[in-house]
Amino acid sequence: MGSSTLSLQIAGLSLDYPGMLASGVLGYSAESMFRVIEGGAGAVVTKSVSLQPRCGYANPTVVQVKSGLINAMGLPNPGIQVYAEEIRRSKTLIRQPLIVSIFGYSAEEYAVVAGKAVAAGADALELNVSCPHVKQTGSEIGQNAALLFEVVKTVKATVKVPVFVKLSPNVTDIVHLASTAVDAGADALTAVNTLRAIAINVETTRPILNNIKGGLSGPAMKNVALRCVYDIREKLANIPIVGCGGISSWQDAVEFFLAGASAVQIGTAIAFDSPKVFQTINQGIETYLKKKHLRSVNEIVGLSHH
C-alpha cells in the first residue's frame, strides 16, 4: 500500500503513488511493467497499440542530445490481437491501474482497438493523438480539432472505462485542443507528448535518426511541458491533468503539481536512472509535503495559480 500522503484519485482510478510509467517506455511485457510498479510507480501506461502490428523504424531510433533524447521508434507494437494476451497477463501480475495506450488511422479504428483493450482488462485508455513521427495518426489527429473531437467522441461512445487524451505540445494553442478533447468527453488529459525535433551529425552531414525527425523528451523539454500544464489548468480548472515531460526529480514532479497536474508520468528518466526513479521521487515529494505541513499531494495541485 502507498502512503496516504501520496495516494490520489484521478478520473476514477485509485493510485497509491502519483507517478505513472509514460507510454512508449518498456511497456511491451507484463514482467517489465511489473518491475516499474516495484520501482514505485502508481500506474503504468503501455506501449501504444494499434489494430495491425507495426515493426517501427530502423535504427537509429533514439539519439541523445544535450539534456534529452530524440526518438523516432515508429510506434512498434504487435497489434491488439496479440497484445490483448499481454494485457490479460499484466492484470494477473499488476494490482495497480493498467492504462492501455492506443492509436489508429481513423476514429473507427481507435474505437475497435479501444473495445478490444477494454475487453482484455484495461482499467483505462490513453489515446495517443500526439506521436510526432508517424504519418496519418498521432499528432496529425491531435493537431486537428475536428479529427480530435471525432476520435475522442467515438472512443467514448464505445467504452465505459476512463479515457485519457495525450496532447501534443506541437500546436499553436494547446488550450483550444485540450478543451476540444474535454468537450468530446475526455475524462483526463495527459500533457504532453514529445516536441518535434531533429539531430544532425556534422562529420557525415546527415540527420542521425533513420526517420530524420523525431520527438524530444527529457529535461530539455520540461519547462515547455510545464507551461502546457499551466495553460490548460488556467482555462480548464475541472479536467484532471497528468503532467508529462522531462520529470527526473521530485522537484520536477512538484513543479507539475503546482502548475495544475494531479499526477505525473515518467519515461526518459528511466534510461538515465532506473525503474527505481519512482521511489526516489516519491520519497522526495513526501519529505517536501511534511516540511510544508501538508497531509496530501492533492493539496498542492494547481497551487501556483493562487
Binding site: 535504427n59 533514439v62 521508434m73
Partner: peptide
C-alpha cells in the same frame, strides 16, 4: 534499439 534500457525491445 535504444541500447539504454528505455524502449523494451
Amino acid at each position: 534499439r535504444c541500447g539504454m534500457g528505455l524502449c523494451g525491445s
